[in-house]
């Protein structure tokens, strides 16, 4: 492992608890719990240029002290780990929040900032790149489930990837939000669906969920709460379908 990022936020239900881990050979693995591109396990390999760019960012921060950013109100916990640093909180660390690079003529005490202002900038760039890795994960589904609209009255869970995973559909909560124009609210519907307590989803697997029909001139978004079974652990997840409105 040359980099691991975990993002967690217990304020929402289900909680955000997502992760990505990058190996020296470019192997990317991770888990998504709340995502429009599928929830579950993801594995892939970064193209060499992307890996090289990330390695450069890691090397840039390694000699500097980790920053201590204070996140904005309501921000999720974001913890980045590098072999050289251990866990470092990066919530609130963005290129905008980091001080501008220090000119060479800066006074000696400029480094009194954590890691020095140049170091903070490097950490901010690495933080952004790491967050992008979590998004990048969904290009590589291994055993995941996404949701789609199959018909005006049907939402459909769809397996993604190559490996099977076990789901608990005993208590499924579906939320339908309809939008008209550019994100003008046009209605909202929620409903529980009771399905099988345990089901294995593999390639080709789908599962239909009845939903309320939204007005024809609207774009429908879905949020479906269910659970993925990992060993004996039931992990709450939310699959989302959020196309740009018509």
């Amino acid at each position: 492992m040359i980099l691991r990022l975990v993002i967690a936020d217990g304020r929402q239900t289900p909680a955000v608890a997502e992760s990505v881990e990058l190996s020296a050979d470019g192997t990317l693995t991770g888990w998504r719990s709340v995502s429009p591109a599928g929830v579950g396990w993801f594995t892939g390999k970064l193209p060499a240029p992307e890996l090289t760019a990330l390695q450069a960012l890691i090397e840039a921060v390694t000699p500097t002290s980790p920053p201590h950013p204070v996140p904005r109100p309501g921000a999720a916990e974001e913890v980045l780990e590098l072999p050289a640093t251990g866990p470092v909180s990066i919530a609130g660390l963005t290129p905008a929040s980091a001080p501008a690079p220090t000119p060479a003529s800066a006074p000696a005490d400029a480094d009194s900032l954590d890691g020095g202002v140049d170091g903070a900038g490097a950490w901010a760039r690495l933080a952004e790149a790491s967050r992008q890795l979590i998004e990048r994960l969904t290009d590589f589904p291994r055993a995941a489930v996404a949701v789609d609209v199959a018909s005006p009255t049907t939402a459909r869970l769809v397996h993604r990837g190559t490996d099977p995973l076990r789901l608990d559909l005993g208590t499924v909560a579906v939320r339908v939000t309809a939008w008209r124009g550019y994100y003008e609210p046009a209605g909202d519907w929620t409903g529980p669906v009771t399905g099988p307590a345990e089901v294995e989803a593999g390639p080709g697997w789908t599962y239909d969920l009845p939903i309320e029909r939204a007005p024809d001139d609207t774009t429908v978004h879905l949020a479906v709460n269910f659970a993925v079974l990992s060993g004996s652990t039931k992990v709450p997840v939310q699959a989302r379908f959020t196309p740009v409105p018509k």
Partner: peptide, 16 residues
Amino acid sequence: PAVPGVVGPPSVPGKP
């Protein structure tokens, strides 16, 4: 003591 992060699931952040 410090704990490393866990990819999971569930994903758990490392803590110093």
